[in-house]
Amino acid sequence: MIPIPDLDQIERRTWTRYAESGLTDLLLGAILFASSMAAVVLRTDLPAPWPLVVYFALAVPFLLVFLGLQRIIIVPRLGRIRPGPRAKARRNKANIVAFVSMGVTVLLALLTVGFQGHGFDGSRSEVALARVASPIVMTASILLFFGLTAYILDYHRMYLIGILYAVGIGGIMLYVIEEFDAGIAAAAAAVAFILIMGTVTLVRWTHRHPIPAIGEERYAQ
């Protein structure tokens, strides 16, 4: 007797199968690397826009390479789908979580950078906000963002990536705010861990998923 297909499990696979490749891990590692490099530039005497310039000069090519690799490696192996209503709802939830969490993170980053520049009079409340509250809230928002996204998308490696991101961003903030050099080393270690994990996962995944031989022209006739 044929078992009844478990549609929930099949629907979940339409999401998780893309995350299984490890390519998203590589993009996230590369973005953290770009943030680390921007922090290093922030500590130099270069004028204000340079950290942002460095960040985007690294992050945008990384994103383009990711999209290219996705087209070359992932799509030929897994194919294309138009997601169903449940998958779309799941994606929308993830987008809302990402939007809110990223908004909070960016706001805190801007506040922190602002305190490093003009207007920081060194009052106790501002020092407390810059040195204690901002890093804690930022780290918490990162953990919340990655945790919720991992839960919504069933992307279990993202829990670990979230912890590594929290370590990395926390390290970067310590490096920038407190001039604590070990902070950037922590960020570098987090980047290295994510990139190695993503590379190993991707290599193993490509071995397990050869490109299927498709003679589509013949069927189309």
Binding site: I10, R80, R82, P83, G84, I214
Partner: peptide, 23 residues
């Protein structure tokens, strides 16, 4: 049918990778 039921549409590579069927 099950794989097509959960998506709006899927191409042949999707169906082959999910079902393990040959072309």
């Amino acid at each position: 049918m099950a794989f097509l039921y959960v998506v709006e549409a899927g191409d042949y590579a999707y169906l082959m990778s999910e079902t393990g069927l040959t072309w």
